[in-house]
């Protein structure tokens, strides 16, 4: 099968594939500090998606 690794990762690193903004409402966070506090309180990991909207 066509390797999703090559297809996906190449798009990211070569083309600089951009992700559009995603609402975080469902996850109840707006800033890094707030999200980190939430993770600490709930003893969960904080997963951060760093993207650029271009």
């Amino acid at each position: 099968m066509r390797s999703p690794l090559l297809a996906g990762a190449l798009a990211v690193l070569i083309l600089g594939a951009a992700a559009a903004a995603t609402a975080a409402d469902d996850h109840g966070t707006a800033t890094y500090a707030e999200a980190l506090a939430q993770a600490q309180q709930q003893n969960k990991l904080l997963v951060i998606d760093f993207y650029a909207d271009w």
Binding site: H27, T29, Y32, A35, L46, V47, Y51, A52
Partner: peptide, 9 residues
């Protein structure tokens, strides 16, 4: 998990 999207710009 707690999820945080960060627009880097």
């Amino acid at each position: 998990v707690i999820f945080l999207p960060v627009d880097c710009e």
